[in-house]
Amino acid sequence: ALVSACSFGSGADSDGPVTLKLAHVFPEASAVHTAATTLAERAPDVTDGRVNFDVYPGSQLGGDEELGAGLASGDVECAFFAATASGLDDRLQLSLLPFIATTYDGVDEVFFDEDGVIQTNERDVLAETGITALGFYENDFRGLTNNVRPIQTPEDMAGLSFRVPGLSMYTDLFEAWGANPVAIPFPELYTALQQGTVDGQDNGIVLTYNSRYQEVQKHLTLTRHAYGMGNISCNTDVWESLSEDDQDALREVIDDITADTTQQVRDSVADRLAELKESGMEVVELDDAQRAAFAGIKDEVWTSQESVFGADVMEQLREESEAAAEATSE
């Protein structure tokens, strides 16, 4: 590492107790923040006070892109972050491919299999940039909100403009559905939805609720067209400066915490959905046949992304995705 945390003595290379920064982008009232504070509470207990965390919530140390750079350089020692949005490597967007799995059971099979292609891919790619991924947790399925009409079929999307993340797989996806994907910078999205600059957006229930889009959006369709997975990572130099005992103890805590976080996010989805309905949103919950109509473009989009992720990885993901779909439909 050209600039490692050690060069300016963040403390990680000494034998005394270390205090590591632990950052994330979510507000206080979020499952991830609960996870971060839990880790900060339990870390000194399981390491006899040798490892401590200071939690920095709400993008205080930057968004996912800046956290990625900070983790790689060691300026941010540890973080809960979405590697997909870090810009560190295009291959990190693998887990964003549409319709990898659309049920919690399916997700558990594909995304939370430690030896599965998704986690392996993310761990390996992050390792190349000097980041050690220690655990994975859920960030909610994506959905569609808009202000024009309830969307039951892809045909209902024709002519509507949606703000989507500016990744080719997303613009391809929405164009395949006949919608008009447009770019709106995230800080202006609320006002843009309010004024009708754009008809809709495609974040999930939790982020829609956190960003208060229910105040300016009428319809929500639970397409589950993609799944959000986050990870907790540390700078590799910092992590390896800890003793093996401490690493093991922390890994154990992190396993607990990430499992809890995933469960909490799933639990909170029901509450958030109820609150979205209460604030006047009309929710379309798709049945399997309806969802299949949306998923019809899956092969087309996946094929177009083969050059990014490589044929082997895509083939493995196809197998895992299909196996999970079969196993969970029985």
Partner: peptide, 21 residues
């Protein structure tokens, strides 16, 4: 300059156009 080195090492790029940071 050190930051440039870091960005080059990690190959970090912008989200949409993949402009190297």
């Amino acid at each position: 300059v050190l930051v440039v080195g870091n960005y080059q090492r990690t190959g970090q790029t912008s989200a949409e156009l993949s402009i190297p940071l």
